[in-house]
Amino acid sequence: MKNIQIIDGAQNCVYDIFSATDEEFALLFPGGTDIAFIDEVYAGGDQRLLDVAFKSIWQRRVKKAEACGIHGIIFYELEEKKAYYPTRRDEEATNPDGSNLR
């Protein structure tokens, strides 16, 4: 199982963490990525399979104090964040001018 943190643009977002099977994780984060934007997830995948995966994932909330790592992040409604994750890998995050964030 891998943990996914949800970052939403809503004012009342609480940045929950959910557990996903390896298969579900691979469906949401293809090619070794660990950053995803929900519009891109659905644009690049089978909607039916994704709906089934999310239905299961939403049943597996992990309390933050009990989480052993975060393996992926999904952004909702935060299009402006795409510029910081051009490779969709957290460790490769950059500023829009290409300079490293870390």
Rank of each mutant, 00 (worst) to 15 (best):
Q11A: 09
P86C: 02
A36I: 02
G32S: 08
H71V: 09
L50V: 15
K64M: 11
C68G: 10
K64H: 12
L50Q: 09
S19D: 06
S99T: 14
Q47C: 06
I74P: 01
V52F: 13
Y76C: 00
N12S: 02
L49G: 15
F54T: 02
R102I: 04
D90K: 14
D39L: 09
F25Y: 15
Q59L: 10
A43W: 03
E80D: 07
F29D: 00
N12M: 03
Y76S: 00
I57C: 09
A10W: 02
E23P: 02
E91N: 04
R61F: 03
D97A: 11
V52C: 00
Q59Y: 02
R102K: 11
D8K: 07
R48V: 13
I74M: 10
I74G: 05
R60I: 00
I17C: 12
F25L: 03
D8G: 11
M1R: 11
L50T: 07
G9H: 03
E92Q: 12
Y85M: 00
I17M: 11
S56P: 00
D46Y: 07
N95S: 00
A67P: 03
E24C: 05
P96C: 01
L78I: 07
R60S: 02
P30N: 07
E77T: 15
M1D: 07
E80C: 14
G69K: 06
V14F: 10
R89Q: 11
A43S: 07
A53V: 05
K2P: 13
D97P: 06
I17H: 14
L49F: 06
D90V: 15
L101A: 05
A65P: 00
D34K: 08
G72Y: 04
I38R: 12
R88C: 11
N12V: 12
E80F: 15
W58M: 09
L50K: 05
S56D: 10
N12K: 04
H71W: 05
I6F: 13
H71E: 06
T87D: 13
R88W: 12
K82R: 15
G44C: 05
I73A: 07
L50P: 02
Y42C: 00
L101V: 14
Q47N: 08
G69I: 03
